[in-house]
Amino acid sequence: MARTLTIENMPPTVTGKSTGRPMGPVAEDEDFRFHALLYPNRSLSRDGFRRVLSVVVGVNIVNAVIYLTLGAWPVAFFCGVDILIVWWAFKLSYMQGRRHERVMLTDDALWISRVLPSGHETRWKLSPYWARVSIDRPVQHDTQLQLIEKGRTLVLGSFLSPKERGELAEALGDALAKARTA
């Protein structure tokens, strides 16, 4: 079965620079029916990054010295460029890792907050009575977790693994169903 990717068409409630404070009328001590903070998976810790970069620097310095002694000085330049490219790629990866989403369900509202690596935050406020969770089963790599309210769609957790998206869909769907009956 061919899957089609949905484009978000739900306008945000609030946009702006992330302050790190609780969203809108949601207080820190408020009792949540559901609360999830979603971050992309990081495969390498900061200490692991230092170790990998140390190995890359060591290997490139050894290669640069060997090629300098052989008279091939341009190769030494490219060894330095190689170090910079690896450092830049990891820096970019860690910047993308600052992206996160927060899902908070209270008695009155379902709040979704998406913070980009730049610090720009977008917030949506949905009604728990109208919002429903949609996800294709079985969950595959390209499956999207969608929140649908009155014909508008919001894609949630696109950076999560398929298993994590499925678990989030199930937990959020259960929490919304309980909120509707309460």
Rank of each mutant, 00 (worst) to 15 (best):
L5A: 10
L5W: 10
T6F: 10
T6H: 06
E8K: 05
E8S: 10
M10S: 09
P12A: 11
T13W: 14
V14S: 05
T15L: 00
G16W: 04
K17P: 03
K17G: 00
T19K: 06
T19W: 00
T19M: 00
P22K: 00
G24N: 07
G24F: 07
A27E: 08
A27W: 01
E30W: 07
D31H: 13
A36Y: 07
L37W: 03
L37N: 04
N41C: 04
N41W: 06
S43Q: 06
S45C: 04
S45P: 05
S45A: 08
S45N: 06
R46S: 12
R46V: 10
D47N: 10
G48T: 07
F49L: 15
R50Q: 13
R50E: 11
R51N: 14
L53W: 08
S54Y: 08
V55C: 09
V55Q: 03
V56F: 11
V57F: 15
V57R: 05
V57Y: 14
G58P: 06
V59K: 03
V59G: 01
V59A: 07
V62L: 15
N63Y: 07
A64H: 08
I66T: 07
Y67F: 15
L68V: 12
L68Q: 10
L70D: 09
L70P: 00
W73A: 09
F78P: 07
C79T: 08
G80I: 12
V86G: 08
W88N: 02
W88D: 02
Y94H: 11
Y94A: 04
M95L: 11
M95S: 14
G97C: 06
R98S: 10
R98W: 06
R99P: 03
H100E: 02
R102C: 07
R102K: 13
V103A: 01
D107W: 09
D107Y: 05
D108L: 08
L110S: 04
L110R: 05
W111M: 15
I112L: 15
I112T: 06
S113W: 01
R114W: 02
V115W: 03
V115Q: 02
V115E: 09
P117F: 11
P117I: 08
H120W: 13
H120N: 12
T122E: 15
K125E: 14
K125C: 14
K125Y: 03
L126Q: 04
R137Q: 15
P138M: 10
V139T: 12
Q140S: 14
H141P: 01
H141F: 12
D142Q: 13
D142M: 13
D142H: 13
D142G: 04
L145E: 02
E149N: 00
E149Q: 15
E149S: 04
R152G: 01
G157C: 00
S158E: 13
F159A: 02
F159Y: 08
F159M: 09
L168G: 02
L168P: 01
A169Q: 03
L172Y: 02
G173T: 10
G173C: 11
D174Q: 15
D174G: 03
A175Y: 04
A177P: 02
K178W: 09
A179H: 05
A179R: 07
R180H: 01
T181F: 09
